[in-house]
């Protein structure tokens, strides 16, 4: 079994990818739309945050902090549109995730399943922490995290990330 190589050496070149416009625009719309529709029939899909996974995927593939944070902001605001909470709650959380993921993507190898799992797990935690902080401090809501539920959701999203990223790899265009 090949040992997991998480960081780049000086000899390795960081690969930067881009995506076509239809993919950049259509994919977030498709996945966020699916996420809103699927739980009507398949209740367990409510656990997944496709917007978050897509933000991480675009951020680590493009490896540009500006691009990552803007992608996160747009996807987050798109999700905000479907809720009854004010605009910006998911936007802020995903902006930070996009910026963080692209920063990490520059430094470590995010192409193998193990690192993708860990990356998704880590950023799911960050996302939820930022979300709760906004809800509590800015919106004055008394929200308490159910750690067991959140841990389960983080694992589920991380597993989904492994398969989803593998599928989305086909849409990458090498820069």
């Amino acid at each position: 079994m090949r040992a997991m190589n998480l960081s780049y050496t000086s000899n390795e070149q960081v690969e930067v990818y881009r995506f076509s416009w239809p993919v950049s625009v259509g994919l977030p719309l498709l996945l966020v739309g699916l996420q809103a529709f699927l739980p009507v029939r398949l209740h367990f899909f409510r656990v997944f945050d496709f917007g978050l996974l897509l933000t991480i995927f675009f951020a680590v593939s493009r490896r540009s902090q500006v691009s990552g944070l803007l992608t996160g902001a747009v996807i987050g605001l798109l999700q905000d549109c479907l809720t009854h909470t004010p605009f910006g709650v998911f936007g802020i959380a995903k902006t930070l995730v996009g910026y963080g993921a692209s920063s990490i993507g520059i430094r470590i190898d995010v192409e193998n399943p193990g690192s993708r799992f860990l990356l998704a797990f880590f950023f799911y935690g960050i996302h939820q922490a930022v979300f709760v902080a906004i809800e509590r401090e800015l919106m004055g809501q008394s929200i308490h995290l159910n750690l067991g539920h959140e841990a389960g959701a983080a694992v589920a999203n991380s597993l989904m990330a492994v398969f989803l990223f593998a599928a989305l790899n086909r849409l990458k265009i090498r820069d």
Partner: peptide, 25 residues
Amino acid sequence: HKNTVILAAVLLAQFLALAVQVKRQ
């Protein structure tokens, strides 16, 4: 610090937008 400045600007814009919308009791 271009990237950090842009991050701060985008976050600030969203914070302001949120603060304009949210009403605290």
